[in-house]
Amino acid sequence: MVDLPKKKVGVVACSGEELPEGTITRLAALQVLEKSRPDDTVTICLPLFLAGGEGDRAFAKFYPTISVDGCELRCAAKATEKYSNKPAVSIMVRDLIEQNQLSEPKGRRRLNTAGIQAVEATAQEIVRSVDELLGRQWNRRSGELIQLEISGAVQTVTAQDSNTATCSCGSGIPVQNVIVAGQQVTVVGLPLIFQQFSEAGKNPNSETVNELMNTIKIYNSISSDDEPEYRQAIQKAYTQFWFTEKR
């Protein structure tokens, strides 16, 4: 049985090595990935949008993504939008330093106290955004997350090692092109989704297509106007996949 990737939030840090603020983005992202929200987050090295393959460039389409930048250049936000997809949330460390009235961070290699405080503030902002993107709220009374939205795909996920940052480098997200209303469209995660449905013995009937569409929409943004055309395209593609697999 193929496990679909859980709906996670992508975190892309600029990691700007020239500035303390760049180090802050990296350490804050790592704190969230390794400690605060290890099961809910995944990352990718920014250069892979250019140096990697199509699967890497699908990252921000597949995951709602938070860009974390150190300075006004906003390399992570701009490059993510240019090569993958517009980030769902953009965070800039210098803004947070100002908002939190922190002192100037120093030491790109070893941060000073103000830098460490900025890491904390940035990590908290990333966590807040992750929870918001996953449709969760914090219950102040119990001190726990309230999960508001659970989809079937989310429930089938295999547990991740909670102490390791989930790095997507080189893993690539499988994509497939389908023709929707005469236009070629890239659907992220489609090969895995088809494989999972086929292995579950789901015939390409109307009910299965409904389920397929619901799963596909977790990872792809499809407007209600476009949905009928997508439905037709997915039905055709899955029917072809089904009979090829059963041959």
């Binding site: 090595e17 020239e18 500035l19 920014l46 250069p47 250049l73 390399c75 701009k78 490059a79």
Partner: peptide, 12 residues
């Protein structure tokens, strides 16, 4: 001089 890769990705 150290050069941050993110700037090259952006095309700075």
């Amino acid at each position: 001089r150290l050069l941050a890769l993110s700037k090259l990705v952006l095309g700075d």
